[in-house]
Every structure is written in structure tokens, then in C-alpha cells.
Design a binder for these strands. Structure first.
Length: 428
RNA sequence: GUGGCUGUAGCUCAAUCGGUUAGAGCGCUGGACUGUGGCUCCAGAGGUUGCGGGUUCAAUUCCCGUCAGCCACCCCA
């Protein structure tokens, strides 16, 4: 063995690529239904595109190097900064709201684990230029519908939705200071995975008092819109802060997607640039990582391109999704696209078969034939293994009678067809 | 980047206490079968037991290192 692919990188054998292509096709189909247009950008970007807003933390996980011109560059770890630049550059010319999607290959240098590699493909869908909750609902609906298109129902996946404005308002109302919010967010984010004592310790270290810590845990415990609304009602500015979340959830219900959706304030998301609604999609078994995540990031384009445009978007990777699809044991075999496998009985039949193959291919018909003289048995074996729907057998007898034997490889039935018809791709 | 577990044929797995030529099924190639695939039978190819070192008369087995994979952290595209 001469080595293997780099850790975290994948070789796509035909069956693997068939799955990937099926995923891409479904992504594009759903994006089309929602009226999104596809775009793409460079896989290699200036390093500053990411260091500027994301900080040193991200830089350590970047595939970054210096190119031969001395430029500091990085393989893109996410698509959003590229999108922000592209939209920013033509912001005046683009009709709002902009609905764009992309399927970039993204890279990240970190230790690989199940569902998390150093390279993956990700569906990105974004709505730019609309600050209202209808855009949030539209986008979350698109994410859910993508899963529905893969035949997952509410029993299989669900969306957990939160809103950082709600979190902020509740926490500030609970007595926390602006400076303590990041720590509180971190604790709420971890509240499902980390024992409460450890979380309490984190809060204590950040100088957050017992009473305020209590309100952090209370906020983390809300699992319904009603509970959130009730809490908001007791807080100054709570009515306004919850408006967007309420409207979004209501719209999703109106679209018939209510069964997929739950309000869950423990969804925070790591990226710093989210400003409003945030959401993630999970498999109900919760055995895997989030399938999809996104949210509203109203300030990013301004930071990158200097133009004030509100955005909401999500990313859905092919790795976790692919594992879910494989788990369901859906077969994704490389499609056997052969229309016919041509069989030459003897050596003198090879030339006529070549001629026939060339003619059929000119007509757009997919054909293959054995590349060396073999017994018919071997040729039919290969034809079957290739998934050809039929074999076209040509031997001395057939040539004399100006026919070919067309054998259906599924049923095993065969009959003679005039060569003049076969040459036109008519097999019966 | 830190810690734990694992590593035998393309795949799934065997190999007694450390014992001499590392096996099986599937898959692959060929044959039985010179004008008809799927079934059956026979044969073959394919291994530096991840790699390197150590202990030992002897290492797939024990020890160390390293690489890779899985898991948990970190982080979460």
C-alpha cells in the first residue's frame, strides 16, 4: 500500500460519490423550490478574510500558508465571509432580498472524529437584505424541507430554535451584566452536556453571584415558547425581544412544519457573529452531531464590506447527513447507466460490434463491450455486473440473417431484432 | 492540542499459555462451461499481522515509541 488520503480527507469511490451526488442533487432541488440561486467563490482566500473577524482561535484551525507570491492564504473554513464580500461588492446592484445558496468544500485543520473531518461539503443558504422574522422562518423552513426531501419526518429530525436577543434580555433582566453575558452563553450552551456543579463553578469563577447563576440555569431550562414568553413578560423590554421568535415559530406552524420545531434556549451556537435567531437541526436519536445550524448575523457584511445589510443563513454538512442516510441503509449504488452491452460471439464479430458501438454512442446511447475475446458466458457475466439492462449479441448466424439477439438481462428473455433497428437504438 | 481504547487479506473476522508454514467467509482472477450471466463445485492471487525498536530460543500475542482510526475533552465549519 502506498499510503492513504490525508487524515480527515476522503477518497470518493463510485458508490461514495453516488451518495454525495444524491445529496447534492437533493440540496439543489430544494434550493430551487425556494427560489435560491447558486453561486460559488474561491476555495483559497486571503488569510485576513478570516482573521479579521474570527480571532486567533480560528486561525489555529485554518489550513493556512504562504503562497509563492508571499501572500498569506487559507483554505476556506466557512462560506459566509466569501458571501459577505461578494454581496458587499455588488450590494447596490442586487435586488433585495437576495436568496443565494452554495455547496462549497470547506476545510478545517482539527482532529477528526465521527461526523467531523478536515474537509466537508456544506449546503449554505442565505437570505440577505431582510431583517424581519419572515426571512428567518423562510430559511428554517428550507432547512427542514431539505431533510424532508431526504424522507426524514418529525420523528427523525427536529429543529431547535432560540434567539440571542431573548437570551440577552432574560439574562440582563436576571441581573447579569453585559460583560458576564459571554460566560452565561457558554454555560447555557453546555448545560445539556456538562454537570451542573461544573457549570456553577464556571459561573462562580466569572464572578457571577448565586442569584444571577440561578437565573442562568432557569433560562437554560426553558423548552417551550410559552415558558419563554412567560419569563419575558416579567422582564423589561421582554415583549419586544420575543417578538421575532414568536413570529418565526408561528410562521413555521402555518407552513405545516410545527411538528419539527421546538423553542430551546440552550441553542447558542459558537460563532460570535450571530445577532438574533439561532437554530440547529438534530436527529431525534441525538446520537450524532447537529445536522445543520444557522442563524441571523446582521452585522457581518458591514464588518467585512462596510455595507449595512441584515442576513440570515444556515449551513448543512454532508458528513453527518451522509451517516444518517447510510444508517437508514438506503442503498446508494453508482448508477449502472449502460443501455446495452454488446457481445461479440467470435473474433470476426468484433469489428461489427465496434461499428455498432460507435454508431449507438453517436446517438447518445450508453454501451460497453468486452475489451478482449472472451466466451459469451464471460461477456454476459460482465454485462450483468455492469448493470446493463440488455445484452446485444452478434455472431456469424446473426450477421448472416442481418439481426441481433437482444437479451433482457433482468428476465433472461431474448429475441431477434433486425440490425437496421438495432443500429438506431431500437432494441425491440 | 490533551487523555483513553483499538490496529491481522479489498471487506467482516479467527489464530489455545508467547510456539515454529497466520486461517475462514465474502469479494477478486481463472477453470469445470468453445453460442448464453445469476446457481454449484474446484483452483489461484492477495499479508513485512499499521510502522520502528525492545524483551525472548521463539512475538500477531509482552514492553516502548510512532502513525492511523474510534471515543471523550478543546472546538464546533
Amino acid at each position: 500500500m502506498q499510503g492513504q488520503a490525508l487524515p480527515g480527507f476522503r477518497d470518493f469511490y463510485p458508490d461514495d460519490l453516488a451518495l454525495r451526488n444524491a445529496i447534492f442533487a437533493t440540496w439543489r432541488e430544494v434550493a430551487r423550490r425556494y427560489g435560491f440561486q447558486e453561486y460559488d467563490g474561491p476555495p483559497l482566500e486571503p488569510l485576513e478574510l478570516y482573521t479579521g473577524k474570527s480571532g486567533e482561535e480560528i486561525v489555529q484551525q485554518l489550513y493556512a500558508f504562504e503562497d509563492k507570491g508571499g501572500r498569506k492564504v487559507a483554505l476556506r473554513p466557512e462560506m459566509t465571509p466569501t458571501l459577505a464580500r461578494m454581496v458587499g461588492a455588488r450590494a447596490q446592484a442586487l435586488k433585495k432580498p437576495i436568496r443565494w445558496f452554495a455547496i462549497p468544500q470547506l476545510f478545517r485543520y482539527e482532529r477528526q472524529q465521527r461526523g467531523r473531518l478536515r474537509e466537508h461539503f456544506q449546503l449554505n443558504m442565505d437570505i440577505i437584505g431582510e431583517a424581519g422574522p419572515a426571512a428567518d422562518a423562510e430559511l428554517i423552513a428550507a432547512a427542514i424541507d431539505t431533510m424532508r426531501a431526504f424522507e426524514f419526518g418529525p420523528a427523525d429530525v427536529h429543529a431547535r430554535i432560540s434567539d440571542r436577543r431573548v437570551l440577552r434580555t432574560l439574562l440582563l433582566g436576571g441581573g447579569l451584566t453585559e460583560a458576564q453575558l459571554p460566560t452565561a452563553f457558554e454555560v447555557i450552551d453546555k448545560s445539556e452536556r456538562v454537570p451542573e456543579e461544573a457549570l456553577a463553578e464556571i459561573l462562580e469563577k466569572a464572578g457571577i453571584g448565586k442569584r444571577e447563576a440561578g437565573s442562568v440555569f432557569e433560562v437554560a431550562s426553558f423548552r417551550s415558547l410559552d415558558a419563554v414568553s412567560a419569563a419575558l413578560a416579567k422582564v423589561k423590554g421582554g415583549e419586544d425581544a420575543g417578538e421575532s421568535l414568536r413570529t418565526t415559530v408561528a410562521a413555521l406552524g402555518t407552513m405545516g412544519l410545527g411538528e419539527f420545531v421546538s423553542v430551546d434556549l440552550t441553542i447558542v451556537r459558537g460563532l460570535a457573529y450571530y445577532t438574533g435567531i439561532v437554530f440547529e437541526l438534530f436527529d431525534r436519536g441525538k446520537e450524532l452531531r447537529a445536522i445543520c445550524g444557522g442563524g441571523r448575523y446582521d452585522n457581518l457584511i458591514k464588518e467585512i464590506a462596510g455595507i449595512d445589510l441584515p442576513c440570515v443563513g444556515f449551513g448543512m454538512g454532508d458528513v453527518v447527513l451522509g451517516e444518517l442516510l447510510r444508517e437508514r441503509q438506503k442503498a446508494f449504488e453508482a448508477p449502472g447507466q449502460l443501455d446495452a452491452f454488446l457481445v461479440a460471439v467470435g473474433g470476426e464479430d468484433v469489428a461489427p460490434v465496434l461499428t455498432l458501438a460507435a454508431g449507438l454512442r453517436n446517438r447518445g446511447i450508453a454501451v460497453e463491450y468486452a475489451l478482449r475475446n472472451q466466451p459469451i458466458r464471460k461477456q454476459l457475466e460482465l454485462a450483468a455486473a455492469r448493470g446493463a439492462s440488455r445484452a446485444v449479441i452478434i455472431g456469424p448466424d446473426e450477421r448472416k440473417a442481418k439481426v441481433a439477439v437482444v437479451r433482457d438481462l433482468k428476465t433472461g428473455k431474448q429475441h431477434k431484432v433486425a440490425l437496421t433497428k438495432v443500429r438506431k437504438g431500437v432494441f425491440k
